[in-house]
Write a protein that binds this DNA or RNA. Structure first.
Length: 517
RNA sequence: GCGGGAGUAGCUCAGUGGUAGAGCAUCAGCUUCCCAAGCUGAGGGUCGCGGGUUCGAUCCCCGUUUCCCGCUCCA
């Protein structure tokens, strides 16, 4: 089957079995926003637990944090998000290319400068050593003409930018007869503002309100709490702060199901280190994180590192962990060496000293940061993609059959155990309930008595339940049940009293964590 | 944002200018079965939404919204 078809089936499966629903579906939906259903929320919580415990429980120098979504607006100025996430964009209707309007105008300004410089260069050649550039620039009519154009355009451009006047920006592009470099035409759309940050107002009165943003990343909540955690937790460098939380980006194009959403959840850990040691830690965390992914057992070859060639303004090293999705290798996690950019920026913008006194060195410094940042929703999709199988089966009488099975790692499965009476009479349902009542404090259990036993097994396969226990007449006599395994479909008869231990040995995270060290 | 495709029952999809059907699923009853498809019955849709053409629109036209694909964008 084509990979794309599998992806489509996976999306349908997510809906049909209560993993993922589109937001506000009965109102036609809301673009690129999704809700997690009764099984999805369980899986998601289990993924969080796997990540959180592997960070906070297994590393004594990593602690947790849960910072608010709303933060002081200046934080986003300090982080660079206000500038970098705020672009006036314009499209050329013929070439279908999109440009930043401000960049187009700046290029036009550069053209005038170029013309002036050419005149200067020509004159310099002609006059040689006697050439007085300052005088030339002040007197040459061609240079003066261009300089005046430059001045006029620059003044107009600066005013438009300051006033955030998009119509004026468009008018400038029209007036300057700026053409698309690809199509060569001047057939432009209007200039539109694309701000990747969602904004709202805090405070009840309009004039006294503070413009606040929904955070576009969770990292800043960690940076601005660096001092609080370091001091109250008596943390010594190197140490890390982990956080799971929602982030929001008003994506221009948000697609591929839950791969790129407007509201999404991140699991981030910022690790603070001594300057100069950041690249060693970067390598160490690369390795640690890759192990974490591979421990799930979806095939080592399905993961790879993708080194960033173009680094963001804050980073001196960056790598993605990519997984082979049905639509190709895609980023699941990013590991970045963020230098001291963020803490220094906050130090500058807040006016508070954000430093660490290193007793070994006997000096204070702004720590460097190595970040691991994983998209929880992407991780969810990755696990669903990797777990979804359509198996061809042949039964004893030669009948062909297919089953859809989610081979989720047992610790992550939404339901751990389904208990079902073989038939719904003769006291079998009561016995099944009895077993659940005993085990429900340990595992998420489900009871099912509807339809044939085979059908019930398949229903559990579809949501990834690793174990089914079936109560039959023999159970009443000798206190045993048949346990049926999801992946192999094998069955064996075990004592009811053994169930707890059999399941516990498979569904706890210990086996996974053992692969991490 | 541009271009293309799609939207009919929970799911997969038929269908017709005269107000809708199948299979599966769901529910109830029968059957009592260890790998989905045995029998009987029931519920469920203002055919994405809005407007237009028409005596009449699920069907034709326009707009809009959502999803998919390509481009674009992407800390």
């Amino acid at each position: 089957m084509a990979q794309e078809d599998i992806f489509k089936k996976l999306i349908a499966h997510c809906k049909e079995y209560g993993f993922v629903f589109q937001s506000s579906e009965i109102y036609d939906g809301l673009g690129a926003v999704y809700d997690y259903g009764q099984n999805g929320v369980e899986l998601k919580n289990n993924i969080k637990k796997y990540w959180w415990d592997s960070m906070v429980m297994l590393h004594e120098n990593v602690v947790g944090l849960d910072s608010a979504i709303f933060m002081h607006p200046t934080i986003w100025k300090a982080s660079g998000h206000v500038d970098a996430f705020n672009d006036p964009l314009i499209d050329n209707k013929d070439s279908k290319k999109r440009y930043r309007a401000d960049v187009l105008i700046e290029e036009q300004l550069a053209k005038f400068e170029e013309k002036m410089n050419k005149e200067v260069a020509k004159a310099q050649k002609r006059f040689g050593d006697a050439f007085d550039e300052k005088q030339f620039r002040e007197t040459n009519p061609r240079v003066l003409a261009n300089q005046q154009k430059w001045n006029e355009l620059h003044a107009r451009f600066a005013k438009a930018l300051n006033d955030n006047d998009l119509a004026e920006l468009k008018q400038i592009i029209v007036d300057q007869e700026i053409a698309c470099p690809i199509s060569g035409t001047r057939n432009w759309t209007d200039v539109r503002q694309f701000n990747l940050m969602f904004g709202t107002e805090m405070g009840s009165t309009a004039d006294g309100a503070l413009k606040v943003y929904l955070r576009p990343e969770t990292a800043q909540g960690i940076f601005v709490n660096y001092l609080n955690v370091q001091k109250t937790g008596r943390m010594k460098i190197p140490f890390g702060i982990a956080q799971i939380g929602k982030a929001f980006r008003n994506e221009i194009v948000a697609r591929q199901f839950i791969f790129r959403m407007r509201e999404f959840e991140q699991m981030e850990m910022q690790f603070f280190v001594r300057p100069g040691s950041e690249l060693d830690w970067f390598e160490k965390w690369k390795e640690t994180r890759m192990k974490w992914h591979r421990a799930l057992g979806f095939g080592d070859d399905n993961y790879r590192f993708h080194e960033h060639e173009k680094l963001a303004h804050y980073a001196n090293a960056a790598v993605d962990v990519e997984y082979k999705f049905p639509f190709g290798f895609k980023e699941v996690e990013g590991i970045h060496s963020r230098t001291d950019f963020d803490l220094s920026q906050h130090q500058e913008f807040s006016g508070k000293k954000i430093q660490y006194y290193d007793p070994e060195l006997g000096e204070s410094y702004v720590p460097y940061v190595v970040e691991t940042s994983i998209g929880l929703d992407r991780m969810f999709l990755q696990i669903m993609s990797a777990s979804y199988f359509e198996e061809e089966l042949e039964s004893a009488n030669g009948k062909k059959d297919t089953r859809v099975v989610l081979k989720l790692p047992a610790p992550l499965a939404p339901v751990k155990l389904a208990v079902m009476p073989l038939v719904k009479k003769d006291g079998l349902p009561e016995k099944a309930r009895e077993i659940i009542d005993d085990l429900k404090f340990d595992f998420n259990c489900q009871y099912d008595e509807k339809d044939s036993i085979g059908k019930r097994y398949r229903r559990q396969d579809a949501v990834g339940t690793p174990f089914c226990a079936t109560v039959d007449h023999q159970s009443l006599e000798d206190q045993t049940v048949t346990i049926r395994y999801r992946d192999t479909m094998k069955q064996e008869r075990v004592a009811i009293s053994e169930l707890k231990e059999i399941i516990a040995s498979q569904v706890n995270f210990k086996a996974l964590f053992a692969k991490l060290s």
